[in-house]
Design a binder for these strands. Sequence first.
DNA 1: CTGAATCCTTGCTGATACTG
DNA 2: CAGTATCAGCAAGGATTCAG
Lengths: 142, 142
Amino acid sequence: MSQELTSQTLAELMQRGNVFSDKCPSRDVLKHVTSRWGVLVLLALMDGEQHRFSALKRKILGVSEKMLAQTLQQLESDGFVIRTVFPVVPPHVEYGLTELGRQIAKQVVGLADWIENNLLQIIEAQQQYQSQQTSSLQHWQS
Amino acid sequence: MSQELTSQTLAELMQRGNVFSDKCPSRDVLKHVTSRWGVLVLLALMDGEQHRFSALKRKILGVSEKMLAQTLQQLESDGFVIRTVFPVVPPHVEYGLTELGRQIAKQVVGLADWIENNLLQIIEAQQQYQSQQTSSLQHWQS
DNA sequence: CTGAATCCTTGCTGATACTG
DNA sequence: CAGTATCAGCAAGGATTCAG
């Protein structure tokens, strides 16, 4: 019963402009992939290899086990990450990107790369903004 | 004194792999443009027109004045949004995208569009994930 | 009209401890 | 090894009020 959607429901979901509505499922997905750790997990998995939980924890500096598990679950539930369990003791679990995951990872990387490539201009703009703010503080000497 | 950066400082900032560090300025910018309202503001300004504060508030459903002002300030400080003040009464302020803003908006739109275009597959994956979760809850009937 | 300032609620986050 | 559960701290977010 979870294998079909009415075309009516889909039509509503696929509408453009829905992003301006908070109920749009796109916003949840966007939230997941652009979250603090979501971006880093996608980047860490971009090499196409399988990664163990502890390996990801070591690679992504500063992430707690809780947030790593949570982030991986979100990305898995969206179909971006595949989780493979080896029924051995001690437990062995590997994570990798699905085809869908590789595609969205490219988009995220594209955004991140653009920012890194244009960071100079951004920083200049930030400094101009700062100097303008301070220069407009001419309230001293009334 | 805010017009120059040493090439050494820049070299550090431009390093790839810095995204895995929390101190990377890129993460702040990424945070701004992918924030809950940042995406919507960029999308709302993508038409190239100038928009008044109240017009944006109407267009972006659910945003509070506080968050709209805050988001616009962040995007302006990053050099993505230009703020034009008309010294009249009552006050008249218009917002638009800079060239830098148009470029990053394209990246963000690319990400958002990809999600919308692939939403069907994502939703299917979510449903499969859900059904797998519930089917593994075979703890009843011990 | 366009915000700034304040208070208050919510949710995210991380450290700790515990399970299989 | 690979998580889950719980709790406490903090920052984001929202409603309201006030100012230019």
